[in-house]
């Protein structure tokens, strides 16, 4: 090996050690403890497939998967569409553009502990602004976060999550739009293309890789939803109804409140497989609408 090669290894050694110790080891270790009974305090005991069978036959796990899927189905399209529209509008020549960008990005840097309080207030059945508005225009107020129908609750949380996440998606799409050659748009305009045609035939195809990335990132984030649900419902110990639980909350609860590391690890791996499958599914359809040329 060349002398230069040694130096390369030496300089990357801290990162390699970090990767091995804090990333690779926990992944391998969690795969191991998924086959054991381990309470954190005593030595793990091998139980074979028990944790996997228990998880796969546990109704609350499937309820949580159903919830993250519905959450994702509402959150991802809403966030992508609204982020695209806002990015498009903010890419125009308008006054106070920077100020608008700042406003839309502010929720991203707002912690969920504060965002949760805000949205819990907005959704309050008796005193919330949303129900007050509905009531004042003659619409019956809605139980947003304590509805009998679980999907209303999940949709309410998804909408709050759109508010929080739209800023970062908007920034990505805006960056993509700013790379669209002005000459191309001007040439299309001279040839008589309307705004709609320029948007759908030029801007969207050119920005489609960014849209695709936003969708992938949003999907992964939605399946990993955790803090948004804690922000909206308070702590796990306060008793978030099972019908509103998501998988990451159950994993955290089982691991660190109930000290059941084995089932929690099995659940985490199953969630990983589901996220991977959905990402591959999205990738399968990528070629049909994403343009890299």
């Amino acid at each position: 090996m060349h002398k230069q090669g040694y130096w390369g290894y030496i300089f990357t050694l801290p990162f390699i050690v970090n990767l091995l110790v804090f990333v690779l080891f926990p992944i391998v270790f969690s795969a191991y403890i998924a086959f054991t009974q381990w309470d954190l305090f005593n030595a793990p005991r091998w139980v074979g497939l028990d944790n996997w069978i228990q998880t796969l036959t546990d109704p609350p796990f499937w309820i949580s998967i159903r919830n993250v899927m519905v959450f994702s189905l509402i959150f991802v399209p809403l966030q992508t569409v609204f982020a695209f529209i806002i990015a498009y509008l903010l890419n125009q020549s308008i006054r106070g553009k920077s100020l608008f960008r700042l406003f839309y990005f502010m929720p991203v840097v707002t912690p969920w502990i504060a965002g949760g309080i805000l949205w819990v207030w907005l959704y309050n059945y008796r005193f919330g602004l949303i129900n007050w508005t509905l009531d004042s225009i003659g619409i019956t107020p809605i139980h947003w976060l304590d509805n009998k129908h679980w999907w209303v609750v999940i949709a309410s949380v998804a909408i709050a999550n759109v508010w929080k996440g739209i800023g970062s998606s908007m920034i990505l799409l805006l960056a993509g739009m700013q790379n669209v050659p002005k000459e191309m748009l001007e040439a299309a305009a001279i040839d008589g293309a309307s705004r709609w045609v320029r948007l759908t035939r030029i801007i969207f195809p050119l920005v489609s890789p960014m849209v695709y990335m936003v969708m992938i990132l949003s999907t992964i984030a939605s399946f990993q939803a955790f803090d948004v649900f804690l922000g909206m419902f308070g702590s796990i110990t306060a008793g978030i109804p099972e019908q509103h639980m998501v998988t990451n909350l159950i994993i955290y609860r089982d691991a660190f409140l109930f000290f059941k590391m084995g089932p929690a690890s099995a659940m985490a791996w199953l969630l990983f497989v589901i996220i991977l499958s959905i990402t591959l599914f999205q990738r399968y359809f990528e070629k049909r609408w994403v343009h890299y040329d």
Binding site: I236, T237, P241
Partner: peptide, 11 residues
């Protein structure tokens, strides 16, 4: 801790 949370969820 475990049964109390289960009760609280339904209460």
């Amino acid at each position: 801790n475990e049964w109390r949370i289960a009760v609280q969820q339904i209460v």
